[in-house]
């Protein structure tokens, strides 16, 4: 979706200008009112963040083995138990944190990379820009999943860190292209030229004059990469790459698959982590769509009621 966001960015959607703090908050509230998608997305996101932060306080050891094996959801085990008698609910809650960690840390690193390579290249220009752009395009066309699989197979992972780094270094290219295009269009704006005439140093022009006007697109790219990171991590874990003993939703799916939960019909084992991944992805996507709506009025699904009916009446009145 980030690619759709770039088209109107050329001129129509001058990023919303900043104001005082209270006005900013007011603006944010207005944006939420205009975009119910964003609101729903943020609620989903908030739910998982709270679950990751406070959930572990209310549960016992998620890896503790129990006597009830492959138990259906019951009053004692809300989401049933695994082949080893572990509480699925506890596992889902304990896995939220690491999953979010992978998503947001990898998303953060790759956003920084895409800023450095995309915006940096656009501003340096010349040969280095050509080289960086070529590099970006190469990364972009390499099929990421096989690459990640190959790298993960080589790296002996004890923690989630190698996975995070691998994802971060493969997931920046799309955002880098978008940000580069945006920076190219913005570097010739008059206020950037005016800053140059004032004698402002190049790095300051980028950081102080340019980036604040690109915030929405950077955030959008970040969210996009977070989704990518979470899905990639789940995929890798499902294939048994990386440390399978760490708890994450992907690893839960791996163990469910390895212990034939799918063939034995123990849906309560694989459905919750799968649904969590889907729900979190949905939430993040909704936030992204919402951002898009706020930036690009033409995409708004809810139009002012009065204007719409009026327009219809006019359309009906004049064949």
């Amino acid at each position: 979706m980030t690619t759709t966001a770039i088209a109107p960015a050329a001129g129509a959607t001058e990023p919303r200008p900043g104001r005082g703090l209270s006005a900013r908050l007011h603006g944010a509230a207005g944006a939420l009112r205009r975009s119910p998608r964003m609101l729903v997305g943020l609620i989903i996101l908030l739910f998982f963040v709270l679950l990751a932060v406070f959930g572990p306080l209310f549960i016992h050891n998620p890896n503790a083995l129990g006597t009830e094996v492959l138990g259906r959801p019951s009053a004692k085990y809300w989401l049933g138990t695994t082949q080893e008698g572990q509480n699925v609910l506890y596992q889902v809650i304990a896995a939220t944190g690491p999953t979010l960690e992978v998503g947001f840390v990898a998303g953060g690193i790759s956003t920084v990379l895409s800023l450095l390579i995309g915006v940096g290249g656009a501003f340096i220009g010349g040969i280095s820009d050509e080289a960086l752009n070529l590099f970006t395009n190469v990364i972009l066309v390499i099929p990421v999943m096989p690459l990640v699989i190959v790298i993960s197979a080589y790296v002996q992972a004890k923690s989630l860190l190698p996975t995070i780094i691998i994802i971060a270094f493969t997931g920046w290219a799309g955002t880098a292209r978008v940000l580069r295009a945006l920076a190219l269009s913005m570097r010739s704006r008059d206020y950037i030229l005016a800053a140059r005439v004032s004698g402002e140093r190049p790095w300051r022009i980028v950081v102080v004059e340019l980036l604040p006007n690109m915030t929405a697109f950077i955030v959008s790219g970040f969210i996009f990469t977070v989704i990518f990171a979470i899905l990639t991590q789940a995929g890798l874990a499902f294939l048994g790459l990386g440390n399978t003993n760490l708890l994450s939703w992907g690893n839960m799916l791996y163990w469910a698959q390895a212990d034939q939960a799918l063939t034995s019909g123990a849906w309560w084992w694989f459905a919750p982590p799968g649904l969590c991944i889907a729900l979190l992805g949905t939430g993040l996507s909704l936030v992204n769509f919402g951002l898009d709506e706020v930036l690009n009025p033409r995409l708004r699904s809810v139009r002012p009621v009065g204007g719409r009916t009026k327009a219809r009446r006019q359309a009906a009145g004049s064949p």
Binding site: P15, P17, R189, D190, Y191, V197, S198
Partner: peptide, 18 residues
């Protein structure tokens, strides 16, 4: 640069909206 300054054509574009 200190000695030679410029006023741009479009005042809507020459000030940073942020």
């Amino acid at each position: 640069r200190r000695e030679v300054q410029m006023v741009f054509q479009d005042p809507f574009a020459s000030l940073n909206p942020a």
